[in-house]
Computed example of a mutant assay.
Amino acid sequence: MSTLVDDDLWSAVGDPTRRRMIDLLLADGDGTATSLSERLPVTRQAVAKHLAVLDRVGLVHASTAGRERRYRVDDEQLARAVRQLNAVGSAWDSRMDRIKRIAESIQRTNDENTRRTDEKNE
């Protein structure tokens, strides 16, 4: 598993409308710009632009059916995105644990210094 994060991929899924589109495509199996625009608060043209971004990073793929382009989520690319998110989450969990230990150590030192000062003043 690669620990490198694909910035283009995360830029693409960073948009809430695109995430909602992925959810709809996963739920329905596939969809068109028209069918997605009927369920989203954006125009068909905006949906088409969002789909182009998702297609460029490989999260969706289009096939032509008559005059329509039907989009499907690429399961492998989505799984790759999930792995990356998990790796980033684990790295941040480790960082936060380290910050917590440092903060607790500082707090213990401050508490000990306060206790010593109080004992001297008694």
Rank of each mutant, 00 (worst) to 15 (best):
S2W: 07
S2D: 14
T3L: 15
T3F: 15
V5G: 08
V5E: 12
V5T: 15
V5K: 10
D8A: 15
D8G: 09
L9F: 03
S11D: 14
A12L: 02
G14I: 06
D15K: 12
D15W: 11
P16W: 04
R18V: 04
R19Q: 08
R19V: 04
R19A: 04
R20I: 00
M21A: 08
M21G: 06
M21L: 05
I22H: 02
I22W: 02
D23T: 15
L25S: 01
L25Y: 00
L26D: 11
A27P: 07
A27Y: 09
G29D: 02
D30G: 06
D30W: 07
D30R: 11
G31W: 00
A33V: 04
A33H: 02
A33G: 11
T34G: 09
T34L: 14
L36F: 04
S37P: 08
E38A: 15
R39L: 09
L40K: 04
L40V: 01
L40N: 04
P41W: 00
P41H: 04
V42W: 00
V42D: 06
T43P: 01
R44Q: 13
Q45I: 11
A46W: 01
A52G: 07
D55W: 02
D55L: 09
D55T: 15
G58Y: 02
L59C: 06
L59M: 02
V60C: 00
H61S: 03
A62I: 01
A62R: 09
A62D: 09
T64A: 08
T64F: 03
E68N: 05
R69N: 11
Y71A: 01
V73L: 08
D75Y: 00
E76W: 01
Q77E: 12
R80Y: 06
A81I: 03
V82A: 07
R83K: 09
Q84D: 10
Q84P: 08
Q84E: 14
L85S: 14
N86D: 14
G89K: 02
S90P: 01
S90A: 14
A91C: 00
W92Y: 11
W92I: 12
D93G: 07
S94N: 10
S94T: 15
S94W: 11
R95T: 13
M96I: 13
D97T: 14
R98T: 09
R98A: 13
R98D: 08
R98N: 07
I102E: 08
A103K: 10
I106P: 02
Q107P: 06
Q107A: 15
R108C: 03
R108S: 11
T109W: 05
E112H: 10
E112I: 08
N113G: 11
N113K: 03
T114M: 09
T114N: 06
T114Y: 05
T114A: 12
T114Q: 12
R116Y: 02
D118H: 08
D118W: 02
E119Q: 09
K120C: 06
E122A: 06
